[in-house]
């Protein structure tokens, strides 16, 4: 029974990783940037939900929706101001800019809300009983909503016009322009979508971990990024599989080995996967033509 319990817990945190990993993966697929500021979008999402609920005593669903809108807008804004001017320059400059944005968001949050952690009340109270074991609503809602979102996203990317545009731009931006696709809008949409998913992830994260602080996006973002690489960066189903794998591995390590070593296990998995199949579980290998 413990195993089942750990697995479910792992799926819960894994779903959160998967939601965040999707953002990394889509952005990487389309502009080939490891967006280090993505983790801090989670933090912005958490703070805005908390602030709207605390300050205006708004209902939770409203605060969550507002935070999705705020994060999407912020994601687009960051892309427009910081990343777009650098699209043609060295990839490392872009990476450093992303690190700069990450620092900026963290320090702004620290300035506005102070470095002290804030308490975040669980929105999804109550439990569900399965057989002899009971699971909190936060767990079930997280997993259920994540599954629905992932199905929706797959449909979006596979079936809709904007999804087709996203795939075209990630394949070859210039060719996409020649085919009449508005590359700028597609990139903006991708950032908005990724950031919106990060906002949803932030709400789920806060419901289970109840504390928010300016630096919370760092490790969470890093692990979600590991999940994206594990699944095959640029691949949407890959991000989901990667997220769930990382979540379950982490939960099992916590349960059976030591909670101190979870990070080592996560990064160890990353290294092993990269050495065996650098393109990740579902990624495609691209060879250079001589």
């Amino acid at each position: 029974m413990t195993l089942l319990y750990l697995m479910i817990n792992g799926l819960q945190i894994g779903s959160i990783y998967a939601l965040v990993a999707l953002g990394y993966s889509m952005v990487y697929g389309i502009v080939k940037l490891v967006n280090f500021a993505h983790g801090d979008i989670i933090m912005v999402g958490a703070y805005s939900t908390w602030y709207i609920m605390a300050k205006y005593s708004a209902p939770a669903w409203f605060a969550a929706l507002a935070s999705i809108v705020i994060c999407s807008a912020l994601g687009m804004l960051i892309e427009k101001i910081a990343y777009k001017p650098l699209r043609k320059s060295d990839r490392l400059s872009l990476l450093v800019t992303a690190i700069g944005i990450s620092l900026l968001l963290q320090n702004l949050a620290q300035l506005i809300f102070s470095a002290n952690p804030r308490m975040f009340a669980n929105i999804f109270t109550g439990t569900v009983t399965v057989g002899e074991r009971s699971f909190s609503n936060a767990t079930t809602v997280t997993i259920a909503v994540s599954v629905i979102i992932m199905i929706g996203l797959t449909v979006l990317v596979k079936r809709t016009k904007i999804g087709k545009a996203m795939r075209a731009v990630s394949e070859d931006g210039e060719a996409a322009t020649l085919m009449g696709i508005n590359v700028n809008n597609t990139i903006s949409f991708t950032f908005a979508l990724g950031s919106g998913l990060a906002a949803i992830a932030s709400v789920f994260y806060c419901c289970s971990y109840s504390q928010i602080q300016p630096a919370m996006g760092g490790m969470l973002g890093l692990k979600a990024f590991v999940a994206a690489v594990l699944g095959g960066i640029g691949s949407i189903p890959g991000a989901m599989i990667g997220g769930l794998c990382i979540g379950v591995a982490e939960s099992l390590t916590k349960g059976y080995v030591s909670s101190q070593l979870t990070d080592a296990v996560v990064f160890g998995i990353l290294i092993v996967v990269l050495l065996i199949k650098p393109s990740g579980i579902l990624g495609r290998q691209r060879n250079e033509k001589v």
């Binding site: 890093l222 990024f225 080592a264 990064f267 990353l270 290294i271 990269l274 050495l275």
Partner: peptide, 12 residues
Amino acid sequence: IITLGFGEIIRV
């Protein structure tokens, strides 16, 4: 990414 992973493992 892999060096990032190694760096974190060293730390842990």
